[in-house]
Design a protein around this nucleic acid. Structure first.
Lengths: 146, 146
DNA sequence: GCAAATTAGATTGTGTACAATTTAATTACA
DNA sequence: TGTAATTAAATTGTACACAATCTAATTTGC
């Protein structure tokens, strides 16, 4: 009585290419990010800060799908590099407010060409890109409400 | 003279939802994987071994998009749990052959229901799943030849 | 045949990720 | 109003992930 194990084959997984492609694409950012002294995770945190100037750790984590265990050391590193400040909210001492500095804002001008540069490394046509974007956010939306 | 920074907005990235969705979906495996004492990375390594019984570290890394820096400690952990053995190839002492053990093979029966269980956590219809699969492997294929 | 180049894996160091726990501040509510 | 519950970050411990380097074995090319 042979059992059917096809469901456990790597090529039948959807999660595996998701995991692998994410890793490989993130890796493509490194040569460009190292020029501005950021890691990928630091870069996406800076993206939120370029947009909002200041934000609590909790809110930042909601945007990035990251928790304080990841963000606390990451934000300390960004503070050390002089790109952000960290200070407790006066209204609620539990809350830590992260603010972008002038140096952090300046960094945006150096970063602005990165999306295009990485884009040229990742071969995907515009239709596939749109489909991928749509499906990924559908998945993320579906996971949130549980 | 205002510069256009839209390319740096989080919502205009394709990589970010890829990164976030991969992380969140992998996280969904943990409750099921912890029951059989595996992490996600160990699980995908076992998938290759369930399929092939034995493989070199190099080949395993090619399948999983992982290098020896990640695989060496991971395979030592799997060896410690008794799921694999590690021994040098006699034909070429540089090569380390990883072999599945009887316990490792038995684990497959416990694991076989995991894909379905995780599937029910991730809301995606069959058309989207097929599209996603196609696009992700297209990306992975495009990154390889460079 | 042998030195140079290549290859496979291991090691080191840095930076995530995240579960679980802890601490301190705030809020709920009896 | 005072205690219990909740909340936000920080901390701790484990496990990747990978660049860079190292070591040992094998292959190349003369």
């Amino acid at each position: 009585m042979e059992q059917d194990f096809d469901a456990l084959k790597l090529e039948n997984q959807l999660c595996f290419p998701l995991y692998a492609a994410a890793k490989e694409v993130v890796k493509k950012y490194n040569p460009f990010l190292s020029e501005i002294d950021l890691t990928y995770t630091q870069y996406i945190a800076m993206m939120v800060l370029w947009d909002k100037q200041e934000i609590s750790v909790k809110e930042l984590g909601e945007h990035l799908y990251l928790d304080s265990g990841t963000l606390t050391p990451l934000l300390k590193a960004l503070e050390k590099k002089g790109f952000v400040t960290r200070q407790r909210s006066e209204a609620d001492e539990r809350v830590l407010i992260v603010k972008i500095t002038d140096d952090g804002l300046k960094l945006r001008e150096k970063a602005v060409s990165i999306p295009e540069q990485v884009g040229s490394c990742v071969k995907i046509n515009s239709d596939d890109a749109k489909e991928l974007y749509r499906i990924l956010y559908k998945i993320l939306g579906g996971l949130k409400n549980e």
